[in-house]
Design a binder for these strands. Structure first.
Length: 308
DNA sequence: AAGTTTGCCAACCGCGCTTTC
DNA sequence: GGAAAGCGCGGTTGGCAAACT
């Protein structure tokens, strides 16, 4: 671990809580874990800045929070990443980029730190060895096409060039990483992935359904736009629910069995960010920091519902 | 057996956003 | 409306153990 002397003057200015003299750093001891766990069990999470003092810990609040979030929380799953979890990480990373907390929120029991580490140590290398750029999920050395322009208007998606697809299809039975087959085929019929575009500093993936409704998935932010960029319901909740739509294979199977489409009403709970589960449950009690306009979301739900 | 390199992952850092006053 | 505090996120570091020479 870093020595206490490694702190910079700038850090001292911005994060004084971590640099107080006498605060312990480095690996946590079982005694400290016990102190923190029992305190949170009794008093609950939050107020991290003052928690260490109240709990009798010589740690900064940030350190306590990190230890709780990444290790001590009861919902944290230890052990190796399963193949299906790896598949999910790959698919979500392709949609979301390095938004580890958002990815972790879709994978029960896994933390953003764990997923980030797993990506950096395993998956990125795996993709590179397969000739895939881990950042863009596209071939590292695609055939140069002098006629193509980097900022061309959206065109129909190209066939999946991703060699990892088949292995993923075998392992998960879900599909490939390149969008249309990656998600369940029912949704694939509804949302066709368009090209990735760069607007300013943001990168966006476009998903379009058969009715021409386009969803713009920002990789640097979480804007979701419908039809010519009329942005509605922006925020992680909408992104989350859209991901639910893309990822929820159970829903697909049920629909396939019943041969029915979900109604707008049935979509609304997910559109409003309800029914989240897994690793993000700890956060469910905390009011969302992203404002969601209910009326706009209803309209969005109607539109999506009509599409389905 | 000893020294060096490599890989993993827990923990830290700094920044930016939200909330509170 | 502005400042300060609190919190969460993504990037990075460094200790440790295993693998290698």
């Amino acid at each position: 671990m870093r020595s206490p002397t490694s702190a910079t003057p700038k850090a001292n200015k911005t994060t004084p809580c971590c640099l107080k003299v006498g605060l312990k750093r480095g690996p946590w001891t079982p005694e400290e874990d016990q102190l923190l766990s029992s305190y949170i069990a009794k008093e609950g999470e939050g107020r991290w800045r003052t928690l260490p003092k109240r709990a009798g810990l010589l740690r900064c609040g940030k350190s306590c929070r990190l230890r709780w979030m990444n290790y001590l929380r009861p919902s944290v799953k230890r052990g190796q990443i399963a193949p299906d979890e790896e598949d999910l990480i790959l698919r979500l990373h392709r949609l979301l980029g390095n938004r580890w907390s958002l990815i972790a929120g879709r994978i029960p029991g896994r933390t953003d730190n764990e997923i980030k580490n797993y990506w950096n140590t395993h998956l990125s290398k795996k993709l590179i060895s397969m000739g895939i750029d881990p950042r863009t999920h596209k071939p590292l050395n695609p055939n140069p096409n002098p006629k193509s322009t980097p900022h061309a208007a959206p065109t129909p998606p190209a066939p999946n060039p991703n060699p990892i697809s088949s292995s993923l299809e075998e392992s998960s039975g879900v599909g490939d990483l390149n969008g249309t087959n990656m998600i369940n085929p029912n949704l694939s019929n509804k949302y066709m992935e368009g090209p990735t575009q760069t607007i300013g500093s943001d990168t966006h993936d476009y998903w379009q359904n058969s009715d021409g409704i386009t969803m713009m998935m920002g990789l640097q932010d979480s804007r979701v736009s419908i039809n010519n960029g009329d942005e509605i319901c922006g925020g992680d909740d909408v992104l989350s629910s859209f991901l639910n739509e893309l990822m929820d294979e159970d829903m697909f199977l049920k629909q396939q069995q019943q041969n029915t489409c979900p109604t707008p009403d049935s979509l609304l709970p997910s559109l409003l960010g309800l029914g989240r589960g897994g690793a993000s449950d700890w956060n469910a009690e905390v009011p969302s920091q992203v404002g969601v306009d209910g009326e706009e979301c209803s309209q969005f739900a109607d539109q999506v519902g009509n599409c389905l």
